[in-house]
Amino acid sequence: MQNQLETTEEEECVLRPMNCELNQLSRPDGSAMFMQGDTVVVAGVYGPIEAKLQKMMHDRATVETMFSPAKGPPCVDDRAKETVIRETCEAVLLTALHPGMAISINVQELQDSGGLLACAINAACLALIISSISMKFTVAAVSCMIDRESGKLIVDPDSTQIQQARVTFTYVFEGIKKDLVSCHTTGRFSENELMESLEKCRAASQNIFDFYRNIVEQYAIKL
């Protein structure tokens, strides 16, 4: 009986507990420290600021992203993460409002225990919200995996679960119609597995959007 109770509880609460501190840093226009389970990331947004001459675009703002790992200099893996974060934020921002300017998004990893990319995107989105820069929509990133042995789909796995993963997916959804903004996968999977994981993550993304709403409301009262 005890066991049964635990499993149902596990299924209901699909995402790891989230926690967030907004505007902890004084210099950025918006900053967020976002925790998903034990994965912790700090994101800071400056913008619109003056663009470097060589990166300046005459019709819209350039989006610069910097992803710094917890230790060591950024490597090729981090470049790939940076690209996903940048292109996702570019989709989110109304860059045409600030021609010739730059928006700089800086993400610092503090601790990784699974779902780092998803956590980084969520932190960046919260930082953008709190910096009150114009956005088309908000985004929520959800990671999930399929277990190697049981073939079970686990949403928002932690680092111990990920070691048993056959496939991992990271999806980013937009807040209006829940359409897919970004997607990153590792491992081999079938079409059905893709569709199933997409549906589950789409449902789970609602929790993140609700969390955004709550946290922003809390901070709005403080102001």
Binding site: V84, L180, C183, T185, R188
Partner: peptide, 18 residues
Amino acid sequence: DGPELCGLYKPGGIPISQ
């Protein structure tokens, strides 16, 4: 790859429907 997929990459951009 055969009947299976081994990668789906969409780095941002406009959202897409199912």
